[in-house]
Amino acid sequence: MKLLRDILDKQVVDREQVKIGKVDGLVAELRPGEPPKIVAVELGSITLGRRLGERPGRWMARVAARLGGKRHAEPHRIAWNKVRDIGVDIEFDIDVRETAIFDWQDWLRDHVIGRIPGAG
């Protein structure tokens, strides 16, 4: 399997097929004498910022912490052993509602979008 081509930047869905983001980062564990093991995927603006460079990464982390509190000062991670299927999308055996990934969308829904008439 080729990680950069086939995994990175792919669409991530949860077990309900809800689109929750792209594979913005891939985390490997370094083990002495053994090959690095993939342990998680990362999602979110902090990881994307870090891909652009050190400074955008730090800046993004600061913004995220300011807006979202401590819970959002680090990128969101989903453990690799939750992978269920790799096809058009990568499906993880999680429920996005139990993670912090959609906190900002929930905030947006509860405070802005949901208050506008006709939002459904």
Binding site: Q11, V12, V18, K19, I20, G21, K22, L43, Q105, D106, L108, R109, V112, I113, G114, I116, G118, A119, G120
Partner: peptide, 20 residues
């Protein structure tokens, strides 16, 4: 581009990022 939920057939409540 960022992998959010999208679709014009959804209600704005269900894709707040998209409608924003």
């Amino acid at each position: 581009g960022f992998g959010w939920t999208w679709g014009e057939n959804l209600k704005p409540r269900d894709d707040p990022g998209f409608s924003t």
